[in-house]
Design a protein around this nucleic acid. Structure first.
Length: 716
DNA sequence: TGATCGCGCCTTTTT
DNA sequence: GGCGCGATCA
């Protein structure tokens, strides 16, 4: 296959650019990922570059997986597998494992996720006798993280204020505790690698010689540590190829530094800049609307985005009474689009600013009896039972990991209470050893009861340590589950208990998929993977996701909800120009995900922390040229919808048929398209909708919205 | 020690 | 509106 087919002149220029430093400035939907992938293939196939000389960095694991799959096709799996491809974090984790000796860390280090990091900060605060009400662990942690992203070690942390002094002390203690636990946090993966390269010219030279070609996607979202890393690796005049869109920079809060683009220009005077301005995704209407929003940001070079697509339908802006009605309207619209075959459910995406907003949407889908896919949010690996099981594995892998140990030492309850744990921790601190070392060598001042319980726990762990190297990860999981009688503990007869047990089984099957992977790598994989959405890729259902998670994706139909002052833009950004600009970019990213049709909505009442406040439509809406909008909601702000359902927004479609009065009653047999036959248990009115509870023979108990579920009555 | 209840605080966004 | 934390009781 010809690598240059279906590419425009600028894209070809980028794919075949000669070695040196190249910066591709590209708008949304301009095929940047495609260009990046093709360039990798072109280097291998046309320039005879050996795959192991290429390093490609993506922003998410998902993007890496997708690029790998594409390269498998273009190059064949055997060549593609030899490329270094992954996120900065994943690549650094591998380097550190390889060079653990030079870095001076345990080869068996574990990676602490944000949860563990917070626990560690809390513990550091406690040890320093600082009040965690006054010094919020979250805030302290983010200050530490920011320092690390800027490569500032604790000793040179600039205090400048009393608060800064506190951060510095916690930072010092935090790093010491990580070392004690043989652990690295996310930021350490980057900073330790930079540190390694800066201090070991020999090691750096090896990697410089290995990676002749370095390619970076989403360059606008790199932080200082990441830039430093690229700079070090590419210093030997290796070829550096970066793809960026300043307007899609949405991670400043995580340390992403837009100045990296300027740094790149300064560090590479010969930098070649290529612009990709043609958009292959969206209609002209969507592009113009998005441009209207983004052009209000200061200090940007306005890109003249254009498309060869037609204008397409206008943008729909709607006002709903509250979040529930907003959600129902979205679900109704999707149901209509699907019913008239204008779209498949999977073509639709619903985006929002904060994860908390997904609840109303999930409710609406559930009531309508329609399936959906949720990205992120209740993240699989954040569930307590999963974290527990992983903590067991991490403990087995690295008994020095005191955070994991204290997490599971009493799970399931084995009579080791907080008091005992606290005294173990303080003994460990005094002796400068790990908590497990104390367990193995119990202080005499413990009660008999605690002694006995701890001895039993030690025996349990020792048993696992003995078999650790001879068992696969799945076998090890089974052993832990069996020894701790975990199933009995979780399956307490409640539905939640069953759910939790199923999650455990799912983790087990993930481990089975990674068959043959050593425990070390399995744990690294689990720590660095955030999205398990690969699970439901085959389901034809609408996708619910945050605007951040939407980056890099595209959908024919996009709904963006919660366009209110305080939500989007978020209230925490209202008083800061930089942050406000980032909120604007966030909306821009969301809008430009849409290929064909864009729906924007806001609610008149938004409930925050339980109480309802009237809201103001987002000021960003005013920046969308009105000729691109199909008409705004004309809802009168008189209060909650009483009799009539909202049908005032101006769309070409008829409002959904809402049945009035009850149409179903308990005892009826009904049939549903997807769930099959079942028995009506209950029917009641909620707002204007009839909510029918049906016990389906196969699908079990479901609550459905009669207006949407299209139940066929079989008998009374 | 472990279960239960009430209180306060919270919420950006993710590798 | 929910979750974690601390106080309180079996």
């Amino acid at each position: 296959m010809d690598l240059l087919t279906h590419l425009n002149a600028q894209q070809r220029e980028a794919v075949t650019a000669s070695d040196g430093a190249v910066l591709v400035l590209a708008g949304p939907g301009s095929g940047k990922t495609r260009v990046l992938t093709r360039r990798v293939a072109w280097l291998v196939l046309e320039q005879d570059i050996a795959p192991w000389h290429i390093l490609a960095v993506t922003f998410t694991n998902k993007a890496a997986r997708e690029m790998r799959a594409r390269l498998d096709q273009l190059l064949g799996a055997s060549r593609s597998q030899r490329l270094s491809l992954g996120t900065f974090h994943a690549i650094c984790a591998r380097v550190l494992r390889q060079e653990s000796e030079a870095v001076g860390i345990s080869k068996d280090y574990v990676i602490f996720d944000s949860d563990d990091q917070l626990r560690l900060v809390r513990q550091a605060l406690k040890e320093l006798n600082l009040d965690d009400k006054r010094y919020r662990p979250q805030a302290i942690h983010s200050a530490i993280s920011r320092a690390k992203n800027e490569l500032v070690p604790p000793e040179s942390y600039d205090t400048g204020s009393y608060y800064g002094e506190i951060v510095k002390r916690v930072y010092e203690r935090y790093q010491a505790m990580l070392a004690l636990n043989h652990a690295l946090d996310f930021d350490d993966l980057l900073t330790k690698t930079v540190w390694l390269f800066e201090r070991n010219p020999g090691v750096l030279a090896r990697y410089q010689e290995r990676y002749h070609h370095i390619l970076v996607d989403e360059f606008q979202d790199t932080n200082q540590a990441q830039y430093r890393l690229l700079h070090l690796l590419a210093k030997r005049q290796n070829s550096l190829f970066c793809v960026a869109d300043e307007d899609q920079s949405i991670y400043a809060w995580r340390g992403a530094d837009y100045r990296n683009i300027r740094r790149l220009r300064n560090d590479h005077p010969d930098l070649r800049v290529i612009l990709l301005e043609q958009n292959y995704r969206s209609t002209q209407t969507i592009l113009d609307a998005a441009r209207g929003v983004i052009r209000r940001n200061p200090d940007r070079t306005d890109k003249a985005l254009f498309t060869e697509r037609e204008a397409g339908p206008k943008i729909v802006i709607r006002e709903a009474y509250d979040a529930d009605e907003e959600a129902r309207t979205v679900v109704d619209t999707i149901a209509q689009l699907v019913a008239q075959e204008s779209a498949k459910p999977g073509d639709c995406a619903i985006m929002y600013r904060t994860n908390a907003q997904s609840r109303a949407l999930e409710d609406a889908f559930m009531r309508a009896g329609l399936p959906y896919r949720l990205v992120g949010a209740t993240r699989f690996y954040a569930r307590a039972e999963i974290k527990d099981l992983i903590a067991f594995l991490r403990l087995i892998h690295n008994p020095a990991d005191s955070i994991s140990l204290t997490r599971v030492i009493n799970v399931p309850a084995r009579a080791i209470g907080q008091k005992t744990v606290a005294s173990l921790e303080s003994a460990a601190r005094d002796l400068g050893v790990s908590v497990y070392d104390v367990v193995k060598n119990l202080p005499a001042d413990l009660g008999v009861r605690a002694q006995r319980a701890l001895a039993a726990f030690e025996e349990l762990v020792e048993g696992w340590l003995e078999v650790r190297d001879s068992l696969t990860v799945v076998e090890l999981i089974d052993r832990v589950l069996q020894d701790t009688r975990y199933a009995e503990y979780l399956r307490d007869g409640t539905d939640e208990g069953e759910d939790r047990w199923n999650n455990i089984l799912e983790l087990r099957s993930v481990a089975a998929e990674y068959a043959g992977l050593p425990l070390t790598e399995f744990l690294a994989e689990v720590a660095l993977v955030s999205d398990v959405d690969s699970l439901g890729d085959d389901v034809d259902a609408p996708t619910l996701l945050t605007l951040h998670a939407a980056k890099g994706l595209e959908f024919p139909i996009v709904f963006i909800t919660g366009l209110e002052e305080g939500v989007l833009p978020h209230s925490r950004s209202l008083d800061d120009g930089e942050q406000l600009a980032e909120e604007r970019r966030l909306l821009y990213v969301g809008m430009t995900r849409a290929k064909d049709q864009l729906y924007l909505s806001y609610a008149f009442i938004r409930s925050r922390y339980g109480d309802n406040d009237p809201s103001i439509p987002s000021s960003f809406l005013n920046d969308i040229p009105s000729e691109l909008v199909a008409g705004r909601s004309k809802r009168s702000r008189l209060g909650a919808p009483s009799g009539q359902r909202a049908t005032t927004w101006d769309v070409k479609l008829d409002a959904p048929r809402v049945r009035t009065g009850p149409n179903y009653s308990a005892g009826q047999r009904v049939r549903h398209k997807a769930f099959g036959e079942g028995l009506v248990i209950e029917s009641r009115s909620d707002n204007n909708d009839e909510i029918v509870t049906v016990l389906f023979e196969d699908a079990g108990l479901k609550r459905l919205m009669a207006g949407l579920a299209a139940l066929e009555v079989l008998s009374n």
